[in-house]
Computed example of a mutant assay.
Amino acid sequence: MLKKIFSYVIPLTIYQTKSALSKSIEVTWANGELVMDSQNTNYSYGSLQRILRLGLKNIGYKKIVPMEHILVLGVAGGSVIKTLVEEIKYKGKITGVEIDPEIITIANAYFDLDKTKNLTIVIEDAFAFVLKTPTKYDLIIIDIFQDTTMPNFLFEPFFTNRVCSLLKSHGFILFNTMLLDENQNQRNKKYVTEFYKNQFKIRTIPRVEVHNELIVIEKIA
């Protein structure tokens, strides 16, 4: 409790490690909240939870509650899963895909991710998972970062088309992106402009928490 109170004055790091896949992972008390950070950005809770919460609100909580199966690509500490379960009261299936097992170990230890009864965690590369899963989903959340870098495959038409093929009718994709320079601005503009729009609607929620842009894709048929 004292650490939580003092964190309003100065952030207090309580755990720090490195894994084979992540440069640095920290668990920190900041402004009275326990967060997970990489070397240069927030990975879970804190600003990231606010960003994805805004995206879920944009889709609509009432639409999410009756959904049967949600896929989360990029779990980290599991803040968006906590939003779904604890705030939205979502009770359907959640499958979380995370490439770094060390991050899941931390999420279980500090954020009680393993106590989420309707969650199944898959330790696997998101690209590989998407290629082989036969399951259709109502909502797919894409939140994949390596520190501040986003893998190029996320913006390639092959991956986008494959993810869209996994959506049920009237399903949604919530894609969190980071914009740190003009090249990344242009990358997102190209992604939205060239998106295959037959049976889908695409829109953006720009400049969330300064450096993030959310892309929302809806399957309308």
Rank of each mutant, 00 (worst) to 15 (best):
L2N: 15
K3Q: 12
I5Q: 09
I5N: 05
F6I: 15
V9T: 11
T13L: 05
T13N: 10
T13Y: 00
Q16F: 01
T17C: 06
S19K: 00
S19I: 01
A20E: 15
L21Q: 12
S22H: 00
K23P: 13
S24P: 03
E26Q: 15
W29A: 04
N31L: 09
N31R: 13
E33V: 05
V35Q: 15
D37H: 14
Q39D: 09
Y43M: 12
S44V: 05
Y45S: 00
G46E: 10
G46S: 09
S47E: 12
Q49L: 07
I51H: 03
L54M: 11
L56Y: 05
I59S: 03
Y61T: 13
K63S: 10
M67D: 04
H69I: 02
L73E: 11
L73P: 11
L73G: 05
G74P: 00
V75Q: 10
G77V: 00
G78W: 02
G78S: 02
G78H: 04
V80Q: 11
I81R: 01
T83K: 01
T83L: 05
V85E: 08
V85C: 09
E87R: 06
K89G: 03
Y90R: 04
Y90M: 01
Y90L: 06
G92L: 07
G92S: 09
K93W: 08
T95Y: 05
T95V: 08
G96K: 02
I99G: 13
D100S: 05
E102H: 14
I103F: 04
T105M: 09
A109W: 01
A109V: 00
Y110W: 08
D112R: 06
K115G: 09
N118S: 14
L119C: 05
V122T: 11
A126H: 03
A128W: 00
K132A: 00
K136D: 03
L139A: 02
I141F: 01
I142F: 02
T149G: 01
M150V: 04
F153G: 07
F153P: 07
F155K: 12
F155T: 10
V163G: 01
C164R: 13
C164Y: 06
L166P: 04
L166K: 13
L166A: 04
S169R: 12
G171N: 05
F172H: 15
M178N: 07
L179C: 10
L180G: 13
D181L: 03
E182N: 14
Q184V: 01
Q184G: 11
K189A: 12
Y191L: 14
Y196E: 15
Y196H: 15
K197M: 02
K201D: 14
K201E: 15
R203T: 15
R203K: 15
I205F: 01
R207Y: 10
E209Y: 10
E209K: 02
H211E: 09
L214K: 00
I215Y: 07
V216G: 01
I217Y: 04
E218V: 06
E218D: 08
E218A: 01
I220Q: 12
A221D: 14
